[in-house]
Design a protein around this nucleic acid. Sequence first.
DNA 1: GCACAAAGTTCCGCTAGACGGAACAAGATT
DNA 2: AATCTTGTTCCGTCTAGCGGAACTTTGTGC
Lengths: 239, 239
Amino acid sequence: MDRAVSRSFAILEALARSRGPARLSDLSAATDLQKSTVHRILATLSELGYADQDDSGRYRPTLRSWEIGIGVVADLPIYRVAAGFLQTLHRTTGETVSLTVLSGNDVLYLEKLTAARPVRFLTRVGSRVPAPLTAGGKAILSARIDAPQIIEEVAAHRDLDVPALMTELEECRQRGYALSGYSPGVTSIGAAVAVGGAPPDAALSVSAPRERLAGKTRDAIIEALLETRARMTEALDRP
Amino acid sequence: MDRAVSRSFAILEALARSRGPARLSDLSAATDLQKSTVHRILATLSELGYADQDDSGRYRPTLRSWEIGIGVVADLPIYRVAAGFLQTLHRTTGETVSLTVLSGNDVLYLEKLTAARPVRFLTRVGSRVPAPLTAGGKAILSARIDAPQIIEEVAAHRDLDVPALMTELEECRQRGYALSGYSPGVTSIGAAVAVGGAPPDAALSVSAPRERLAGKTRDAIIEALLETRARMTEALDRP
DNA sequence: GCACAAAGTTCCGCTAGACGGAACAAGATT
DNA sequence: AATCTTGTTCCGTCTAGCGGAACTTTGTGC
């Protein structure tokens, strides 16, 4: 395990985590590394174009890591295919739509199109939320055999009503979509997207204030969501 | 200049560049490094969560670098503020709108909202185009004193009609927006966004097929663009 | 404005650990 | 079955990363 490599990523992560420019000594403290070591590695990162130093000597990350990262997601078949479907879903429903993928025990928000009358959201693109707490996550879990162990691991950190969740997942499996109220006052509806015959690792979801998600509107949105999911699955399976 | 660090990023970049999973020997060849070295560093990267190995032994980058990167852009004031303005501009014009930032001699596409009837675009979010070739880039350059040297550096690699470009920039400066036809058949209109009194390093742009950008529509779009730019600048200056 | 504090940078001897050639194992190809 | 090719492991060599301390610069408080 190359020590310098490991340390360089720790520094880069600390740099990205610190909102705004970071001082050398802060990074040194955050990573628990000698100042001279941090200084040397930062010089290397700067030379490579991953960090920058302003006039006052403080360091900030550059957009280099973003360029690499965006290249990675742009290569994901799900991401490429989803773009168009997300838009049509957004247009037909008029609400906030999201694309999430399962990453470990979390759901990772890959893309989000926000409604004209936006909701106060706790999540932004790039953020993680434990899968069993979100509509998209539940939709994914409901079709995976490893759902129980994921739920168990999450339950070890937060308190979850595991039995209730299990019966809820069973319901999701039957009707094809999941519901959630993770952010207070907003309801989400999620549907899992599977590629090939594999267990699903992505989901589409629609979110709106609870009062906007009732009666006919709600039924229409669910229909649009399931329709989009079907079309998208079909597009993914077409080689 | 820590060698192992430099090499690890070279490997990560090669991994991200190679669309789809990459083989060890390919990475070894691409980075001009010994197989054993690449193997060891990949093991480190895997342990750190930046790379993964599938059953067939091939390596692929994870979403880790994207998570870091998206955190970096999410911290950019321009990016945070732009989101809402991009949406309203997209809605009022109905066309494709983009947010770009100046990065070196290039313009980097940070965000893009695509029109319902989309254009065949050569650019995607995360891609780079030499600044003098795009509407957004010209708009930015027209308000910067270092424009001549950027143009000169770009002209060294591609052939540019430098004198024509300089007079065009002068026009941009006077009317407040720039025009471009970088992608064949599509016209873009760009306006620079400056924060504080500093020289601008970002731009908003609207793109559409040439035939949709004529007469009254065109005037309306330009008005909407300049209006949005004004509002956004105001929002950025408000602390 | 001076003195003190804290932050960034440089230096250098030490040695841990990265390096790379070669050998080995496991598939894939002919 | 024979032959590549690819991923993995081993190990002696020695370089390059390490960290404590000294030095310089920037900023802060009286």
